[in-house]
Design a protein around this nucleic acid. Structure first.
Lengths: 197, 197, 197, 197
DNA sequence: AACTAAGCGAGACGGTACGTCGCGTCTTGCA
DNA sequence: TGCAAGACGCGACGTACCGTCTCGCTTAGTT
């Protein structure tokens, strides 16, 4: 049971409006950029009232966070591929693919930026995005450990910090996105000499 | 000569006002947070006119970037310490020390966030902060390479991406700042099996 | 029969809800004032839905107009008292008594104000309130004329304008309500030299 | 001396903008009516910012009150004309003329309506309009008293209540404005038999 | 010493988005 | 069909800052 909430009186939330708002937010971000994205603009483009936006999302960043899930495939493969290296490769390719979706990189930048400004959104962004992806990665490392496949001295947490650090640093601080050479370099780094001496 | 500008007629820029503005900006950021930092607020707190702020800085982020240099020691040791590992250790300790300055972490977060929103400021932030620190780190790696001290397969650029990635990821995406254990882990990672072929 | 409407299908109008709405409107007006009186507020206080209010009254002013009849005694004595002066006295006392009902003066002010803004309500207010009271007064004057009791040069309409003008002006433009001295002054004015030619 | 206010620093108020706002308010009222008059609309029509309106006037009614003085001739003749009746006649003609100005009657209705809703504006309306006109009228009556020209039993205050009551009642509660016959009737009423017995 | 530029604090200006509030309409499900 | 609940499109509210623009004053050189 999901709680004894009152049995849903009154008019129901319009799914059509919800989608119109999410789409409008995503498109507007790519068109005018996040700083010029406004709740007013989202509502106007979606043919919705401002109140309707405010009723369901606390900030424009939250709209965008939900829109991201609607527009881009956020799934990360964590299937057992037999070896740590193969799973790592799959994970990194998935990540690169996500960022190749049109509009995703600017949205990610904007959300991370917003997370620096708004402590409440920071938490929602961590819970709704960062932690999920991190958990997927850590699953891989832990399976590798169970398999005896993992380099020594490499905790799952530290490996995650390294990998996500690299990805995010590239996005936030440089203009160089993750390429095949980077994937190769990471795989070599994390696989080197799994504590054999 | 950097241009034959007319030899400074009229009243000179007030250094006192400049410092008052930088101090006001830094303090206000720690007090109310970057999003609630306003040019109006800075000017009022500094006892200055808005025009004076706009005359010398394009955005509030630029004021803060300059204030950071005023308030915190941005120097990084790049002195030759004989070994890559020793210099790496010194560099990481310097970095951790910078972030221990009161108010520095919130300011760094805010500047990086602003760099995601404002493409012009992004460039100024990269040139005025990110690239400088990166150059210092790369100097260390290159000296190690010259010394034959550097791990194989590790370019200076990739090492820098890894290290700064880790540092920034911790600041931006988590609440865990760089600790002694992290420094140890990085040193081990970057020193492992130096050039075994 | 007033029309061959289908003989009332479905649920009947709830008298209880009607009274709850009228009472809520009246009380809210005295508590927060007419400008802050809202349909939403009335419905909420009455435990009714907004739709129910809109179904039966076009505007909040109309609710209040009906509530006035519920809360205050709107009856004016027009009984034949033998003389114009006696009937005038009774009429003026009734009027003063009405305005002594708690909450009546603010409501009258609000309704008259609304009548200036909304042409449709203006008509309903005139028909449902102003004209009725005016008719009562003119009845008195006309009976006086029939009796030979009426001052010369005094038409019923002009006398009504004078009397209602005085009463309303006091309410709308001053803080001085009608007192005994005013009643005396009016009686003297309207009775002076009755038909001396 | 008009007070030791600080000696006017900063940019001065723009008289041009002030007039544009007053004109816009007056015109909009005649075009869309007072209820649909909005500060936003006034500012937009005047080519001004909303803040500029709010800086100088507390409510739209105050804008209109000041606009009235700009647009209509509010002067009332109180010159000594030798007799009470002549001065009364002049006063009533002036009043009728004011209300013949295009747009004045709707504005007066709106201001009086607003004075019923907003206690603060009520005071400003009384001080800035009602009391001034009343004072003019009472001057006339008092001069008549000094001249021995005034009817007995007629105080200046009561006469003012009667006259302004009639005028306002006509405007607020009826569609019949003050005409020549009304002026005649009032003159007769206030002049009749000046207490000669 | 008089003149001429700036720089400066102050603050009014035209804008624009904010987040809130109430409007009047429209489901939705129960009586 | 009436009704309570409540989501919806809409649009004005009054506020907050934006970045620009006078103002009058101060502070330097330049004549």
């Amino acid at each position: 049971m999901t709680g004894a909430t009152t049995p849903a009186r009154g008019r129901k939330r319009s799914e059509q409006t919800r989608l119109a708002i999410l789409t409008a937010a995503y498109e507007l971000t790519t068109e005018v950029g996040y700083p010029d994205l406004t709740i007013e603009g989202i509502a106007a483009r979606a043919g919705a009232g401002k109140q309707t936006v405010y009723r369901w999302w606390p900030t424009k960043a939250d709209v965008l966070l939900e829109a991201l899930a609607l527009k881009a495939d956020l799934k990360v493969s964590t299937a057992d591929q037999g070896s740590f290296d193969a799973e790592l490769d799959a994970f990194l390719r998935d990540s690169a693919a996500l960022m190749a979706f049109p509009g995703v990189v600017p949205v990610l930048r904007s959300l991370m930026a917003e997370a620096q400004r708004d402590a409440d959104f920071r938490r929602r962004f961590q819970d709704g995005f960062l932690i999920k992806r991190r958990a997927a990665f850590e699953t891989i490392v832990e399976r590798a450990a169970a398999r005896g496949d993992k380099p020594a001295h490499l905790t799952a947490a530290f490996a995650a910090d390294l990998v996500f650090g690299l990805i995010w640093y590239r996005v936030l601080a440089t203009e160089r996105l993750l390429g095949q050479d980077d994937i190769t370099a990471i795989r070599r780094l994390l696989n080197e000499h799994p504590g054999e001496e």
